[in-house]
Each structure stands twice: as structure tokens, then as C-alpha cells.
Design a protein around this nucleic acid. Structure first.
Lengths: 118, 118
DNA sequence: CCAATTGTTCAATAACTTTTGAACAAAGGA
DNA sequence: TCCTTTGTTCAAAAGTTATTGAACAATTGG
């Protein structure tokens, strides 16, 4: 039931970078970061990709150690592993998120549909 | 003759992250960062990959805007585009390089062969 | 129990990336 | 000029990643 997650020291920098290098996953992470503290389920990301495809990308993020996924009834709660990432790679997550904000080519985080029912 | 490089504002975050997510390219960037100021030609990276393969990876880095490549006789001078990257994505390059230093799974930068003839 | 909700798995496919060797090109020194 | 050095290009092969739809599983509410 409990899904496999790497421990903090198993998190690999190249894997984290490669995982964040995908625009869909970067958008997921930005959205998580913009709502830190608010529990997110997969459905919250449905405007970013199809349900099946989200399952794939969320698994990639989890396996890389970027997110934590916990079962909660029929839903899953997805959170950023900010503590682990900050301990392991200080400043990295913040600079990536800030950089994403600076990249005019990227869509703004938290668009219409995803905003409802916060 | 002059190879194509993106302008600073054409540099894309997801592309930079994806490019740095490859272990060979991350090693190249770490090596460049450890020798900033010292002009590097492709041959300096020959312990990281074959000549042909290096040509491929160095082109990726250049096209992403991470490095600059200038022709110099029969050689090419490769430099990190630190100024452009820092202006565009403040702190990102430094945190990636620092993170690479923290990642015990990555090989140490600047190994034997690459050290000769600095 | 039944139905709805939420998300996963599977197999197929498409698309991209990496790696390789052989052949080529340009510059510079003997 | 010829040879060496340095690096590129090309086509092929191998490997990897992303995307899709159909089928499945688990939980919860009626």
C-alpha cells in the first residue's frame, strides 16, 4: 500500500534535474510549491495532463524523491519533499522554482481550473 | 563558422534542467566550473566520453545556452555562460554545482588525466 | 450491495536521446 | 605540400521516455 520512496540520501541530483526538465513535471512542482501545506490529490493536476499520463509523471516525481505520495482513502495526497531536498541540495529547489517564475516561456502557475476549491 | 548560440533570454529553464540531467553533461559543467577562466577545448573532456559523443554533448550544452563555444584555430574554446545563466536564473547554476558536490554518487570532478597540463 | 470516484496497470506506439564508427573538414606545423 | 591535430557530420543502432486507451482495483457514499 505504502508506495516506494527513496530515502533522502538516495536522492540523485542528475535524476532530480532530469525529472524537473520535463515541462509537465515542472508545472506540477511549481503548483505544489505555490500551495505548500494544502493537501493535493492527483485530480488537482488534471489540466496539466490526462489522468493516465499524470499517474506516470507523478510516479516519476515520487521515484526521484521530489514528491511524497500517501494513500488517503480513494485519493492520494501529494506533497513536495522540501525538507529532504533542501537538506540534500540546499537552495536548489528554491532557485528552480524562482527560475521557473522568471522564464516567460512557461505558463503561469495556478491557472483558472486548478484554483477552484482550494 | 561562428556556431549558433541562444541569446540570454532565449535560454529555457526546462531545457537547461534536462541538459544538466545527463551525467556526462553535468560532469562537463562541473569541470568547467572548477576551472573557470582557464580556456578549455574538447580534448579536455576526453575521459568523460568518446570524441564523437563529446561533440554531441557539447552541442547540446551550447544549444541550451549553458556553454559558449568559439572556434580557435583547429581547437574550440568552451566556456560556461555563467553571466547569462546567473542573470536569467539567479543562483541556479551555483546550487546545481554545489549539489553535485554533495551527491556522493557522482564521481569527483577533475580526475587524474584531466588535471595534466592545466 | 451498487454505483461513483479516484487513481493504477498494461500493452502498444510514437517520439526522442544516446552511442557508435567511418568518413570528412579545416587549420597549422614540419 | 603533406601530415597531424582537432573536432564535426552522417547514418545506423540501441535505449529510453512520453502518451494513449482499455481494463482493472480500492474506497466510499447511497
Amino acid at each position: 500500500m505504502t508506495l516506494p520512496h527513496p530515502t533522502a540520501d538516495q536522492i540523485s541530483l542528475p535524476i532530480v534535474l532530469a525529472v524537473l526538465g520535463d515541462p509537465t513535471r515542472l508545472a506540477i512542482v511549481r503548483f505544489l510549491a505555490s500551495k505548500e501545506g494544502v493537501p493535493m490529490n492527483c485530480g488537482k493536476f488534471l489540466d496539466l495532463a490526462s489522468k493516465t499520463n499524470l499517474s506516470y509523471h507523478l510516479a516519476k516525481l515520487r521515484e526521484a524523491g521530489v514528491t511524497r505520495t500517501e494513500a488517503a482513502g480513494t485519493s492520494r495526497l501529494i506533497t513536495l519533499r522540501r525538507d529532504d531536498l533542501d537538506r540534500r541540495f540546499p537552495g536548489l529547489l528554491d532557485s528552480v522554482i524562482a527560475a521557473a517564475g522568471e522564464d516567460k516561456a512557461l505558463p503561469a502557475v495556478g491557472t483558472a481550473d486548478t484554483e477552484i476549491d482550494a
